[in-house]
Simulated assay, not measured.
Amino acid sequence: MRTTLALTLLLGCLTATFVRATDVETAEKMVKKCVTDLGVTEQDLADLKSGKVKPADAKDSLKCTAQCVMVASGYMDGSGKLLKDKIKKQYADHPQIDAIKNALEVCGGLKGANACDTAFQIVYCVQTHGHSFQ
């Protein structure tokens, strides 16, 4: 449970920005499944959060967890392409649509070495710059 909570916090900006409140339970189940399936540990999360491990050195399992969540959410396809139009359409009436559009503009074009790295870079960008999107 603590691992799920920690990953939810790590992916917090993404979740807070892109997941509606009514979908919180579904999002938590999705994150838990991805964490379990990919073997992410509490230590992996703690090391990243504390700065002991730099984002560029994050384990592939952590990066692929970001992709797993994004794909399961329907925000990214399996090849690592962010589905910006789908996100904008889904949240067209959301009170924070401007913040969502800003996040997509700033972070949505990032490309990594593979689909997992791309998802991780996007999530990390949103988390790092989230305050400036408001």
Rank of each mutant, 00 (worst) to 15 (best):
Y124Q: 13
D85K: 14
T65I: 04
L62M: 12
S73A: 13
A113H: 01
K86D: 13
T26Q: 11
M1S: 14
I122A: 09
M76C: 13
P55L: 10
A99K: 08
D47Y: 09
H129N: 15
L11N: 11
C107S: 03
A16W: 03
L11G: 06
K84N: 11
L45M: 07
K33T: 15
Q134Y: 15
E105L: 12
M76K: 06
L62H: 00
Q43T: 14
F120Q: 08
G112E: 07
G112M: 07
A27R: 15
L7I: 02
G51P: 00
Q43I: 11
K54V: 08
T128L: 13
A115V: 02
V106D: 10
D37L: 09
V24A: 05
M30S: 13
L82D: 02
P95D: 01
Y75I: 14
P55D: 10
H131I: 10
P95E: 05
V19E: 12
D47C: 01
L45S: 00
C68G: 10
V35T: 09
D117H: 00
L9E: 09
M30G: 02
A16Y: 07
G51C: 05
A99N: 06
Y91I: 07
A16N: 10
T118R: 06
L83H: 04
E25L: 13
T128M: 08
A72Q: 12
C34K: 08
G108N: 05
C107G: 03
L45A: 13
C125M: 07
L104N: 05
K32C: 04
D44V: 02
T41W: 00
V40S: 01
T41F: 05
V69R: 00
H129P: 00
C116W: 06
K29F: 09
S61V: 13
E105C: 02
L110F: 10
T41V: 07
I87F: 09
D60V: 05
G80I: 11
L104E: 03
L5Y: 05
D93K: 15
G130K: 04
G74P: 00
D23T: 03
L110D: 08
L7K: 02
E28F: 15
E42Y: 01
K54Y: 04
A21Q: 10
L83V: 11
E28Q: 14
S61E: 02
K63F: 01
L5N: 05
L110A: 12
M1P: 08
A66H: 07
E28C: 12
K89C: 11
Y124A: 11
L7S: 04
T128W: 00
H94K: 14
L14F: 04
A99Q: 11
V40K: 00
L48D: 05
E25Y: 11
L11Q: 03
E25C: 09
K101H: 09
D60K: 10
K59D: 00
S79Y: 06
G78W: 03
K29A: 14
V40M: 00
A27C: 13
K63G: 01
